[in-house]
Design a protein around this nucleic acid. Structure first.
Length: 589
RNA sequence: CGGGAUGUAGCACAGCUUGGCUAGUGCGCCUGGUUUGGGACCAGGAGGUCGCAGGUUCAAAUCCUGCCAUCCCGACCA
């Protein structure tokens, strides 16, 4: 089919929109693929919608290929199922809630576990019905506190979510593996390089969980990648190993020293190094020699708050994302002045292990970073303003209630799997597969009879793909300084034909004939037939719009040739007019 | 929710400090003409609740107060 630029509903912008920061947002708006309609909500213009539809189609094909079946739920959902799962409240402020004219509660679906579970419960009751895999491509709604980066994080977005239902763990594993493999194929077809990382299953419950991340500076997820082995993990899911215990035999006895004015690690290290009586034979004191005890308040889903102390080496911070993930479903609040006031035994800036632990009078749970192994010696607070304890040895002088691995992860930290250096990178979360288990089936009563006639709770898997986000992610990884560069599999048109001659010459007629030839071969052709537009504008627009092939009918027509550019490879060739269609069709095959 | 910035035509911005004639510039759009291989030129036009509300003043885009919205950073986030 031939689509004429003179009538296509699109307007390209010469300037970048001021509110667009990341390349995909900038280019998709400039090239006329999307327009912002609401905070976190975008209108799909014809070109953008074509890309979205092509992505949806590839997702459908890959889901159908593994035997999943498509269904479609309403976006407007009743409250009851979400009450049953607890998510009417647990989902918090991110859930769009609304009421009908009678005051009955509804929500706009942020994800559909409950609805799928109830649908299967409604229709199936026997182990013979399983396994079954269902999916939908739906608009999801989440009241994001801060939508950003155009399509990358919106309040309304298109997602493919599928769910597997199995009788037992072996079945779930097969379902999981099938979806994971389908995702590998699917993202390859979309032209997205993805890294599969270990992920936290988080508040969703369940066990095995992996994310498909598209590496990109604009991404919001941080992950580690081992430079030697194949270990990859979301930073939230990284588990550092526990170093072997150390022999503390030569460490002097612990002693309390006056360190006035040292409420922070840096001031403490400076004072330690300025004191002759504390001089070390092994070099100067560093932040890594100190033990920092960080206090937070945990808020459980039932609303009860309890304090937690975390001991980490002084050169590291507690990573709040990792902490949140580690203590879920409890939430983390700051340890405020009121909390200090309620516990006079805790001296801000000088907290030490002596007063920490569930068995101590204050009853503050105390967990240590795994690096604080038995036998290691530390400088830490003495629980009095202006005083610290040196040579305090873990296991000899203090113990804790356990360990917690929530210190920040850094470039060159050792890989938990092989010990080599890891690098930290960012990525866009494109897909997430995980074994949900029986959480939803249990609370919503999804049981089937097994071959012994006994009721069995079904086990589920949940698998998501960000479809509208994929448009942005592909734009992020496929563009250059001139504009977009769509992979052939998702490009809105196969070829862009530019008329670059003078009015009255035969470039327009030639371009029209070639366009017709391409169209007859089944290609989608964008023909720039605008009048009174200079060649420079046509070239700029062709590059901005980003079709994978550009055919130019210009001054070469007089010599019987057209210019054919491959936008992806960046190459340009001149071909006899009669050979152009054959060449382009071959490239698009 | 905290910090910062910004709201003036479809887009990008100036004007605000120091209040004052009909609110400007570039791009885009319309009409006519000249152009046509890298975002052309000339002439003429259309398009504005200057974010909203209140206040100060003879007079407010400009000063004051409140609110709203957007963007960035953080917090939060299947």
């Amino acid at each position: 089919m031939i689509h004429r630029l003179s009538t296509l509903f699109v307007r390209t912008l010469r300037d970048d929109p001021a509110d667009a920061e990341v390349p995909s947002h900038r280019l998709l708006v400039r090239a006329g693929y999307i327009r912002r309609a609401a905070p976190g909500g975008y209108t799909w213009l014809p070109l953008g919608l074509r890309v979205l539809h092509r992505i949806e189609r590839i997702v459908r094909e890959e889901m159908d290929a593994i035997g999943a079946q498509e269904v479609h739920f309403p976006a407007l959902l009743p409250r009851e199922p979400y009450d049953a799962s607890g998510r009417w409240t647990d989902y918090g402020p991110n859930l769009f809630r609304l009421q009908d004219r009678r005051g009955v509660d509804y929500l706009l679906g942020p994800t559909h576990e409950e609805m799928f579970t109830l649908l299967v419960k409604d229709l199936y009751g026997s182990y013979k019905d399983l396994p079954v895999w269902l999916y939908q491509i739906q608009t999801k709604f989440r009241d994001e506190a801060r939508p950003r980066a155009g399509l990358l994080r919106g309040r309304e977005f298109v997602m493919k979510d599928s769910y597997s239902f199995d009788l037992d763990d072996e079945g779930l594993q097969r379902s999981y593996d099938a979806h994971r493999a389908a995702y590998v194929r699917l993202f390859a077809r979309l032209g997205l390089d993805v890294v599969i990382v270990k992920a936290m299953s988080g508040a969703m419950g369940g066990s095995a969980s992996e994310e498909f991340l598209s590496p990109c500076a604009s991404g919001e997820d941080t992950f580690v990648r081992c430079t030697a082995c194949d270990y990859r993990a979301n930073t939230e899911a990284v588990r550092i190993g526990t170093p072997p215990a150390v022999d503390a035999g030569t460490t002097p006895p612990a002693r309390v020293v006056d360190t006035p004015g040292t409420p922070t690690i840096q001031t403490l290290v400076d004072v330690l190094n300025s004191r002759d009586d504390l001089r070390r034979t092994t070099g100067t004191w560093t932040a890594a020699d100190t033990l920092k005890n960080v206090l937070v308040m945990l808020r459980n889903p039932d609303g009860i708050r309890q304090p937690l102390a975390i001991g980490v080496p002084g050169d590291r911070e507690v990573d709040m994302k990792r902490l949140e993930a580690a203590v879920a479903p409890a939430e983390v609040d700051a340890f405020g002045d009121a909390d200090f006031a309620a516990r006079p035994g805790l001296v801000k800036g000088y907290i030490g292990p002596d007063v920490l632990g569930e068995t101590k009078p204050l009853g503050v749970r105390y967990l240590l970073d795994p690096r604080v192994v038995s036998g290691t010696a530390w400088v830490t607070g003495a629980n009095e303003a202006g005083r610290h304890t040196v040579h305090l040895v873990s296991g000899r002088d203090f113990t804790a209630d356990g360990t917690i691995d929530v210190a920040d992860v850094r470039d060159d930290d050792p890989c938990p799997s092989c010990g080599s250096a890891m690098s930290i990178e960012r990525g866009i979360e494109m897909g997430h597969v995980f074994q949900l288990g029986r959480k939803y089936a249990e609370v919503l009563g999804l049981n089937v009879l097994d071959d012994k006639g006994k009721q069995r709770v079904v086990t589920m898997g949940s698998y998501g793909v960000g479809v509208s986000r994929a448009v942005a992610a592909i734009a992020e990884s496929h563009h250059d300084e001139l504009g977009l560069r769509w992979p052939r599999s998702v490009a809105p048109m196969d070829v862009h034909v530019v008329i670059a001659g003078k009015p009255g010459d035969d470039t327009a007629a030639t371009a029209g004939r070639v366009a017709a030839e391409l169209s007859d071969a089944g290609l989608q052709v964008l023909l720039d037939d605008r009048e009174g537009v200079s060649p420079g504008v046509r070239f700029k627009d062709a590059e901005l719009l980003g079709m994978p092939m550009i055919v130019i009918a210009g001054r070469g027509v007089a010599k019987g040739v057209l210019e054919v550019r491959d936008r992806i490879a960046g190459t340009t060739v001149e071909l006899p007019i009669g050979d152009v269609a054959k060449h382009v069709i071959a490239c698009c095959a």
